[in-house]
């Protein structure tokens, strides 16, 4: 590399690294380390973290169970319907989460197009833990479906021809060949979806509210703490940072690249 390109590319690259890394360093520098453990275990922190873990892993499970078949169907067809469906499915990806929360209220809320019928049976979804999972799934599923569909499209279609002539139905091919071969794609899709769910704020607070122990996830708890006790917010943030790094690290070792 010439000096010119070193400066021309290296300068912006260094700034990019600073933009990304500096806030993380700041978080670590400003933490009141004597308090971190107390902040996390006392108060609402531990409740919020537990709720976050329960809801994000439920979301990941939901993506796996519902999103994998969808990704499979999308990967196998190229019709007009599929292309439109794929475009529509990516809307939650770009939608401001708060708008997503409003849309969810219009669907599952007491007067929502589905919720009004549930109310008749005494079932109310908004402001429950179920609502948190629905909100997180709404924002996270597209990441999962797109990642897994991409991996499935990467499979050599001739493998299926071979498997079929050997006597495998399309479902057996999916189970015994396609799924084992896209495990890395499924893992990175899960990691993406889980991370997105963990950070979910806007749709959750709009649709599920901010009830301690029921719908107040860790990001909501951080936000609330910041209003009253910035040091406690920092402690919780460090905890979230740690959890994210650990979970992604576990996945990265095996599958995520």
């Amino acid at each position: 590399m010439t000096w010119r390109s070193r400066l021309g590319l290296g300068g912006p690259a260094a700034v990019a690294v600073l933009v990304l890394v500096l806030p993380l360093v700041a978080l670590l520098l400003r933490a009141d380390w004597g308090r971190v453990l107390g902040d996390i275990t006392g108060g609402t922190g531990v409740l919020a973290l537990r709720l976050s873990l329960v809801t994000t892993f439920s979301t990941a499970l939901g993506c796996l169970v519902l999103g994998t078949p969808l990704a499979w169907l999308l990967a196998r067809s190229d019709g007009l319907v599929t292309r439109w469906l794929r475009a529509v499915l990516t809307v939650p990806l770009v939608l401001p989460p708060v708008v997503g929360g409003v849309a969810l209220l219009m669907t599952w809320g007491r007067r929502g197009i589905v919720g009004q019928h549930l109310t008749a049976f005494g079932v109310e979804i908004p402001f429950t833990t179920v609502a948190v999972v629905i909100a997180e799934t709404f924002v996270a599923m597209p990441y999962y479906v797109l990642a897994v569909e991409g991996a499935m499209r990467g499979l050599d279609p001739r493998l299926e021809s071979i498997a079929r002539t050997l006597g495998a139905s399309d479902l057996r091919y999916l189970r015994t060949v396609a799924l084992p071969l896209v495990v890395p794609g499924i893992a990175s899709g899960l990691a993406l979806a889980w991370a997105r769910a963990l950070g979910e704020f806007g749709a959750t607070i709009t649709f599920a509210g901010n009830l301690v122990g029921t719908t107040q996830t860790a990001p909501l708890a951080v936000y609330v703490a910041l209003q009253q006790d910035p040091a406690a917010a920092t402690s919780l943030s460090i905890l979230l940072l740690g959890v994210s790094v650990v979970v992604l690290g576990l996945l990265r070792g095996r599958w995520v690249r």
Partner: peptide
């Protein structure tokens, strides 16, 4: 295809990469 008594072999061997040779043949 799965209802025909047919065998297919292409230019690339296209073995199932996650299965042992034996399990490929037993598939």
């Amino acid at each position: 295809p799965e209802q025909r008594r047919v065998g297919l072999m292409l230019a690339d061997a296209l073995l199932f990469p996650h299965l042992r040779a034996l399990d490929n043949v037993a598939y």
